[in-house]
Simulated assay, not measured.
Amino acid sequence: MAKRNEATKTQAVDAIQARIADLKALLNSYQNAGTNLAAAQAAVTSANQAVADASAKLAALKQQLGVDQTAVAAAQVAYDAAVANQAAAQAAQQTRLAQERALQEVENQAQGLKQTSSAVTLSKASNKQAPVKTTEQQLPQTGNDEGLLASALGMVLMALATAFGIQKRKED
């Protein structure tokens, strides 16, 4: 019986030692899990800080985007105003050119009237120098010079009125 007790004791001791080895492995696992937990908590803290930094950066970028959008809108308004000013300047230039053409036309017409008036005056002067003696009575020649002058003046005034009428119509 003593051998049997000893075998049972040996088995019990072996079982206890196996159980102790299992407990030591479990304790090692538990300690490793604690270390892993601490590392994971540090990683979570680091990730939380990265998220906070990214959120701050995102807020700053959103604010900058708002400022940039305001600057873009202001630049668009300035561009539109410049385009409108350019169109107005071109229209003013076209009006000025039309006025210059109308003025040149009036000057040309006035020059033509001067030449016509000179030719008529010369023609009358030559008619006066060579009076024809006739036996018939002639009616007195009154108002011929004044009529020609009035006609020439009327044509100049008509040309000026037409030129200024064209200018006013283009301005409207």
Rank of each mutant, 00 (worst) to 15 (best):
N5R: 06
A7Y: 01
T8V: 06
D14A: 00
I16S: 00
I20W: 00
S29L: 09
Q31R: 13
N32M: 06
A33C: 02
A33I: 06
T35L: 03
N36L: 11
L37V: 10
A38C: 03
A38K: 13
A38L: 11
A39M: 04
A39T: 13
A42Y: 02
A43N: 10
T45W: 00
S46L: 08
V51A: 08
V51E: 03
A52M: 03
D53V: 06
A54K: 10
S55P: 00
S55Y: 03
A59E: 09
A60Q: 07
Q63I: 05
Q64F: 01
L65Q: 07
V67R: 09
V67C: 01
Q69N: 15
Q69C: 05
V72K: 08
A74S: 14
A75F: 01
V77C: 00
D80S: 15
D80E: 14
V83I: 15
A84P: 01
A84H: 02
Q86E: 13
Q90E: 14
Q93N: 07
Q94T: 09
Q94S: 08
T95W: 06
A98W: 03
E100G: 03
E107I: 12
Q111A: 12
L113R: 05
K114H: 07
Q115L: 09
A119Q: 12
T121G: 06
T121D: 10
S123W: 05
S123E: 04
N127I: 07
K128S: 14
K128Y: 05
Q129I: 05
P131S: 06
T134W: 04
T134H: 03
N144D: 08
N144W: 06
L153P: 01
A159V: 09
A159D: 13
A161Q: 15
I166A: 04
E171I: 06
